[in-house]
Design a protein around this nucleic acid. Structure first.
Lengths: 342, 342
DNA sequence: GGAGACATTGTTAGCGCTAACATTCCCCCC
DNA sequence: GGGGGGAATGTTAGCGCTAACAATGTCTCC
């Protein structure tokens, strides 16, 4: 009746302790109807007493469901992906799923493929890929081997269900805000070329300018890091090509931009207005506090899991449905923008 | 010989295709010696042709090893934990392990316990806990149910193997740096009271001051967020209690502090010197660029997995060994510090 | 040429669980 | 009072894999 010698208790031990068959224990564990309340209580007491834990491998073997979702995350050291991961994790856990995470140092197709391979060996039931690069999304459905895949922050990939923030809308809001303040046009420090988010932000910037009949210059492409924002703005200053307003594709590059402007003796917002993107927690405390576009990363993660679970439940073989959910962006106005000098 | 109808191929299908027994297939898969090269080639060809993948649940059921490591992470949205997670993930994957991650919104004992429970249901082989709070570490070994646990960034927990950055040493370096510049003493904006890292940084700060015979004031306790740095420094300014040098326990609060100083018309570094902690990527581009203490989070993650794998290999039942590894911190000098005004 | 050693392969028996079917028991109603 | 029906439980047969042992074949050396 006590704990068995040495080894962990198994279902049969519980059954013996409770004086029932192992199948009845299984029924209690899985919440089947047609178990007498008194029997159930006895089984639960035995489980508790022995400290029994069901063996997940044995269950997975027979049910053919591991309850594990694979997550491929590009660079969780950045604010956005890290928050998205948190959203995904909470939603998955709330639904009773486990999360197996692979992080990539570099968003190459090869690394993504290898990551998905790794996850496949663990028999994940589906994938969530935080993969904001075009090149990464292309081979995706094929690598998943028929399991459902949801891309998160993946722009408008056609073959895949996708959840993303309305990057283009957010960029439009930012640029409109600057135009409304009276700026003749707005320069753009963009993210890297291959990134879908960067592309959408460029499109929003361009769209808002064209809509207003404002001149559209060439965007400058950075790499998301503060250093590139710094260097690109420095080059603008040196070429004497600084516009009165700058839309920078993320807050990190915006910090670099602010720094370059400060070093050049350019005042923000008196001489140049700056808008960022992301609304990192520090943004309110930069010098000056940064006007930016906030994204609800947690919501993005939650919806990604929502779509994936729907796909798993419906037994949809792959990306047939191609759901696409767009989470709105939100403008956060702070002190880094003003009317242009006369 | 072709793929079996409908279902995924299993080992027996491969065996049939290759004209061997399923056991020989198993031997090839597990790299056993004593398989003829020609046989191995035939098996591999069959595996490839059928697109066979071993079933991880079946293997785990018989080997009693899932190959999964559970990670409990507190707030991966912060820079440090996110980077540490990346380090852990890479090290684990390189060793052939899978990572199951749970993130907590709040570092309460209850949440940690629940997280470890969740992971236990998945039969993880061991745990890595990124848990920098004292309260969280106390019940840990018990919750792990005999599986090995390694605490990462967990200060000097006694009952647990631990990997951490030399917080105290880092803090000492920061304070010494300021004293060497000629400051009579150094004020401290600390992290939350319950956090071990915060405690160690306070200890380092206090130690360096006492060593130099400098007066030791009361540290002010923030919550790691920019806002608290801002408000605490504002309160110092209002009480006219601003020292000539400030050691702020993390870069985020330091940004808030810089902002408060700027608003009060206090120049950095001319009037007040500031040192942060973490060396976030933006630190070099703050106004002014922030002198800070860098931590090698990736290395911390790697060593955490290293210890855990040793524990798993040695079959050590629990935290008997109580290894403790300390990763040195590194001072990064930028423009936010200078000699005090006469 | 035969004994022994060793390399190579096959056979069998579970790992701990759930699904499917079988059995028992009890109650109700004609 | 017997038969039908459903609730409650038990029995059996795998899920796909590896470990242990058994059975070959092959080589060496005296």
């Amino acid at each position: 009746m006590a704990a068995p010698p040495g080894r962990m208790p198994v279902m049969a031990d519980v059954a013996r302790a409770a004086g029932v068959s192992h199948q009845t224990v299984s029924r209690v564990l899985n919440g089947h109807p047609n178990v007498r309340a008194e029997t159930q209580a006895r089984v639960l007491a035995a489980i508790d007493e022995l400290g029994y834990r069901p063996n997940s491998s044995a269950r997975a073997l027979v049910t053919r469901r591991t309850g594990v979702i694979g997550v491929v995350a590009v660079d969780t050291a950045h604010y956005g992906p890290a928050r998205t991961l948190t959203g995904i994790e909470h939603a998955a856990r709330a639904a009773g799923y486990y999360l197996s995470v692979v992080t990539l140092t570099e968003a190459s197709a090869g690394q993504v493929r290898e990551a998905m391979d790794h996850l496949a060996r663990q028999s994940v039931e589906g994938y969530v890929v935080i993969a904001p690069q075009r090149s990464v999304l292309e081979g995706m459905p094929e690598w998943a081997g028929g399991s459902p895949v949801v891309a998160v922050e993946g722009g408008e990939a056609r073959e895949l269900p996708v959840v993303c923030v309305d990057q283009e809308g957010g960029a439009r809001m930012a640029v409109r805000h600057l135009l409304e303040l009276g700026h003749r046009t707005v320069g753009h420090i963009a993210g890297p070329r291959d990134w879908l988010e960067a592309e959408s932000r460029v499109a929003g910037w361009r769209g808002a300018l064209e809509e207003a009949g404002a001149p559209v210059g060439e965007p400058l492409f950075g790499d998301w890091r503060p250093r590139s924002g710094y260097e690109l703005v420095r080059s603008l200053v040196e070429r004497d090509a600084l516009p009165t307003a700058l839309f920078v594709a993320n807050d990190q590059m915006a910090v670099g931009a602010l720094r370059a402007l400060a070093e050049a003796g350019v005042r923000v917002p008196e001489d140049v207005s700056v808008v960022g993107f992301d609304d990192v927690p520090e943004a309110a405390y930069y010098s000056p506090p940064l006007t930016t576009v906030a994204q609800d990363f947690t919501e993005v993660g939650r919806r990604g899991i929502g779509i994936l679970l729907d796909l798993l439940d419906s037994g949809e073989p792959a990306a047939e449905s191609a759901a696409r959910e767009v989470v709105p962006a939100r403008m956060v106005v702070r002190a880094s923008c003003g009317a242009p000098a006369r």
